[in-house]
Amino acid sequence: MTAYIIRRLLYTLPIVFGVLLITFVLFNIVSGDVSDQIAGKAASAETIEEIRAEYGWDKPLFLSRDSQFINHLKNSLTFNFGRSWSDRELIIDKIKRGAGPSLCLTVPMFIGTLAISISLAIIVAFLRGTIIDVLSVFICVAMMSIPFLSFILFGQYFLAFKWGMFPVFFWPDLPVYKYVALPALIGIVAGLGGNLRFYRTVMLDELRNDYVRTAFAKGLGTGSVLFRHVLKNAMIPIITQVVLAIPFLFLGSLLLERFFGIPGLGYLMIDAIGARDFQIINAMTFIGAILFVVFNLITDICYSIVDPRVSFE
């Protein structure tokens, strides 16, 4: 068991290295030199030299003990991303500050989507083959086909502005739950189609199993078969899904945060794109990847504990 965990841990090392390599190539090589951008419009050549020295861009790329790549590895692994060049603030502070608001939005959104889509999925799976099933699958597909931006724009205009059911925007004196309500609702509605369709498939797969037939044969009622047997067994794919979604919760939602003024990481990302602040994007990409790797690891280890069939070889 311990050996398995250690092996699994070692296996993540090349992945982390790969992520660092990709971010380095993207943001330090392909993106080009941004020192004159930092210096501003009227900067002299000396100022630009000064900036290049400060950010270490005058060093060799690879192949040296003090190369940019080695520094990139060192800095990323110690989460020392330096200061954002657009406002000189520590990037890690920005990220720490943004995680909270992002989670305030994404966690309720995620739980809401999950709860609604799983409950509906059970009902729909039970009614499989009927007109309601066909119709609901069609509605799901239809909902998946509407652009997310349209959901946001129509939602904000009608629900918040026209009908005044929600605050239109973040507001300092309002409690969090009030201004998060509408974006979360929009997120849930927009995500429902895809999720419901997925969980319906999961449920149907379970229903095809022999144990379901046995349970019915024993004379159990549909309710108890669905909830005591099917849902329990369907939990494994569901939980996998849930655990792997957690890293994305931290990253927030680009568009929702922007339109509703939630100062989270999605918003930070949009700003960084507009300002070409590659260091912020680099930091976000790296942290996102690390979270994903870590949660993947956790899932695998949990599996190995729960399911004795997982081989430790």
């Binding site: 239109v168 925007f169 300092p172």
Partner: peptide, 20 residues
């Protein structure tokens, strides 16, 4: 003084029209 950052046009207009 409270100053709020609003970068998208639609919410900015909505906030003003609502007297916020």
């Amino acid at each position: 003084i409270i100053m709020v950052l609003v970068q998208e046009t639609p919410p900015l207009w909505f906030l003003f029209m609502q007297g916020k």
